[in-house]
Design a protein around this nucleic acid. Structure first.
Length: 231
DNA sequence: GCATTAACACGTA
DNA sequence: TACGTGTTAATGC
C-alpha cells in the first residue's frame, strides 16, 4: 500500500458498510483501529492482477471498477463498485493471488482491512459471518444474472441492467440516485461500444428511466431499469 | 441490419 | 488543456 493513508472513522464505516452496524462493539472497535483509508485519483490503480492479497477492501466514497485487460489489450469491466461495496474476500479466503485489476473511476476513498483483522472477524463474530454469506450469495446472484443478460438481452437492455447493478442495496448500501461515470465506462460495463452505449442511454432517458448529465447518470426509475427488456 | 471503430466538433470541469 | 458527449462515415459479420 502507498501513502496518503488515514484511520477510518466510525461515521465512514457506518455509512459505507452493511457489516459495521451489525457488529459487536468489541469487534467493531478492533476493525476500526486496524482499518485505514487511502485516497485514490481517477484512473489510478487500486489492485493489480497477480499481486498477493493482504487486505479486504471497501469503497468509503467514490467509485472503482473491477476489470481485466485481455492479451489483445481489450478492457472488460466485471462490475463497478460504488460507496458501500467491499471486495477481495474471495481471494483472501482462498489465499490466492489477485485475479482482477481494480481501478478508480473517480476520486475515491478506499478502505484497507488487513488480512489478520479479517480472519479474526471470521473467527470471532457471528454477525460478520452472516454478512459474508449474504454478500457472497448476493454477488453470485448478480454474476449469474450478468451472464443471462449478456446472452439474452439486446444492447439497450444490457445497458439498463448494467446501470441498475450499480444500485444493488445489499452490495452497495447508502448509494444516492446519481453515479458519476462516463459513457465510455458504461460501454465497458455493458459489453458495448461507447457510441452504442450512448444510443441506449438516450433511449432510456426518453423512456424516463434516467437522466443524463455531464459525466454522470441520475437514476429516476431503478425498478424500470432492472426489468427493462423483459416485458 | 446492426454493431464497431475512427474521426470530428463542441461543451465542460 | 484534457476529458466527456453527440454525431457521422466507413467497415465487418
Amino acid at each position: 500500500m502507498a501513502d496518503n493513508v488515514a484511520m477510518v472513522t466510525f461515521e465512514e464505516l457506518r455509512s459505507a458498510s452493511l457489516w459495521a452496524e451489525s457488529l459487536e462493539t468489541a469487534a467493531l472497535d478492533r476493525a476500526m483501529r486496524e482499518t485505514v483509508v487511502r485516497e485514490v485519483n481517477p484512473g489510478e490503480s487500486v489492485c493489480r492482477v497477480g499481486e498477493a492479497v493482504e487486505y479486504w477492501n471497501g469503497v468509503i466514497d467514490g467509485l472503482v471498477k473491477i476489470n481485466k485487460i485481455s492479451v489483445e489489450g481489450k478492457s472488460i469491466t466485471f462490475t463497478g463498485v460504488p460507496r458501500g461495496g467491499w471486495w477481495g474476500e474471495g481471494s483472501l479466503i482462498k489465499r490466492e493471488a489477485r485475479r482482477y485489476d481494480v481501478t478508480a473511476l473517480r476520486k475515491s476513498r478506499v478502505a484497507y482491512m488487513p488480512r489478520a483483522t479479517f480472519e479474526w472477524l471470521i473467527d470471532n463474530s457471528i454477525p460478520f459471518n452472516k454478512f459474508l454469506i449474504k454478500q457472497l450469495n448476493e454477488r453470485l446472484g448478480q454474476f449469474i444474472a450478468a451472464i443471462e443478460h449478456e446472452r439474452l438481452l439486446d444492447p439497450d437492455a444490457r445497458v439498463a441492467r448494467a446501470i441498475a447493478s450499480l444500485f444493488n442495496p445489499i452490495l452497495y448500501p447508502g448509494a444516492g440516485p446519481e453515479v458519476q461515470i462516463s459513457q465510455e465506462e458504461i460501454g465497458y460495463l455493458s459489453g458495448s461500444s461507447r457510441q452504442r452505449a450512448n444510443q441506449a442511454l438516450q433511449l432510456l432517458e426518453k423512456a424516463g428511466l434516467l437522466r443524463l448529465e455531464y459525466g454522470s447518470i441520475r437514476v429516476l426509475d431503478l425498478e424500470g431499469l432492472q426489468r427493462y427488456g423483459t416485458v
